[in-house]
């Protein structure tokens, strides 16, 4: 029997049973833009940056199971245009002031905006008021930058076993909360060594006294665009040259 494969932008990409379109693409080193997806956690499908067209239907690549012979459109003007609009939505929803952000240069939201040539936020800014939480000795929470990807929620719940983070509210009022009656990180059992401290794709969970350690020009996405890194970082099969 021939191996299972999808056609990703016309290219045959193999996959194994129970893999999603995203799994197959990541394994093949093909970049599908994404923010809320992380291969170590259960897929969620909320940011919608990984929207692709599978057999003519718009679906989330990170949650849609791959099927043999499925034709998937990924890197097309229509999809990239929609993704750019989604990024603009995320930028105006929060307060993303890159010049003062410790995560600038290492931020996936910013890197994706570069990747998709997002030159402006396009929409009117919401300028929400989201106070910081500086209560914790080692970590600062800057909610202004939260894109509600729930990676910290999943990491804290599924890896750390602590459930330090959760979402509350609904709709445009949805927001990240901390597992403490006071709402303060210092009153939770969060620790800098937690997996949850490592996974924020933007600049919400910030280690104190470490900001701006890497000079401009040497930060992660200064060096190479995010898509190039994804393609370079693909897992190599045995016997394959690096």
């Amino acid at each position: 029997m021939s191996p299972l494969s999808i056609l990703l932008d016309g290219l045959p990409v193999p996959f194994e049973d129970h893999q999603t379109i995203m799994d197959a693409a990541l394994a093949a080193g093909i970049y599908i833009p994404h923010l809320c997806h992380h291969p170590e956690f259960e897929p969620q499908g909320s940011c919608k940056l990984c929207t692709v067209k599978a057999n003519g239907r718009y679906v989330s690549a990170c949650t849609m199971p791959a099927r043999d012979g499925m034709e998937v459109e990924n890197n097309s003007p229509d999809l990239n245009d929609k993704r750019r609009t989604l990024l603009q939505m995320l930028f105006v929803e929060g307060n993303h002031f890159c010049p003062s952000c410790e995560q600038s240069g290492n931020c996936m939201l910013q890197a994706l905006a570069y990747e998709l040539e997002m030159l402006s936020p396009h929409f009117d800014q919401f300028y929400p008021n989201r106070p910081l939480d500086a209560s914790h000795a080692e970590v600062l929470l800057d909610f202004n930058r939260c894109i509600l990807c729930e990676l910290c929620v999943r990491a804290s719940r599924d890896v750390d076993g602590k459930s330090v983070f959760a979402l509350s509210g609904r709709g445009i009022g949805k927001h990240l909360i901390v597992n403490a009656e006071s709402g303060r990180l210092a009153d939770s059992n969060f620790a800098l060594s937690d997996k949850a401290a490592q996974v924020c794709p933007v600049g919400v969970i910030i280690e104190k006294r470490r900001g701006f350690a890497v000079p401009i020009g040497e930060r992660r996405y200064d060096v190479e665009p995010i898509s190039v890194q994804a393609e370079r970082l693909r897992p190599r099969r045995a016997g394959e040259e690096c």
């Binding site: 930028f91 307060n95 993303h96 002031f97 890159c98 010049p99 003062s100 030159l119 402006s120 936020p121 800014q125 300028y127 929400p128 008021n129 989201r130």
Partner: peptide
């Protein structure tokens, strides 16, 4: 629009809250 402030308000807009 040239630069962060023209594009998204930039530093001066940090007073908006």
């Amino acid at each position: 629009a040239v630069g962060a402030c023209a594009v998204n308000g930039g530093l001066p807009a940090q007073r908006n809250h």
